[in-house]
Amino acid sequence: MTEITREPSRFGIAVAAGFALLSVATTAVVATAGGAISGLGLVVLLAGLAVASRRLITNGGGILLLGALYVGYTGAPPLLVLVGALTGVLAWDAASNAVSVGEQLGKETDTMRGEVVHVVSSVLVGSLAVAVGYAVYLAAAGGQPIASVFLLVVGAVALVNALR
């Protein structure tokens, strides 16, 4: 049997790199230090894709998000922080999925359709979470935005636990 190459698919690598670059760009616009942290995350993530290591990819995704958190700490506009964090999560998700597809099906196999569905559904779920959160934040902008967002998070955690 012709051996399949157990490496991440090209499509998965492209999507992950794209989201990671977007995340770096968003954080760099706000704070250079945040951009630098995210840039380091991007490098680690790409290295993880190159050697098909899920551990490196998780570390890379973590560093990307650390950059987004730092930007959030500096008090940047919430929308930019949100986009940075969301694209970071999506990059990590796409990279990790590409590695598992590569392990099971190999690089030469046609895996486009399955991966597109995975990425699109992740994007939809992430955008929904961002939209709901940001809408509540904007609606409460006149009164107590922090308290309302705080309560929203607590409520979401309670809901997730109830779903379990």
Binding site: A68, V71, G72, G75, P78, A85, A129
Partner: peptide, 26 residues
Amino acid sequence: AFALGLPFQRPGLFLVALVGVGFAAY
């Protein structure tokens, strides 16, 4: 994100926590 947002009172960080919770629910 939640732990960092609480002491510094940053709405952006709360919203990031919400993204995390959203994906965990997903």
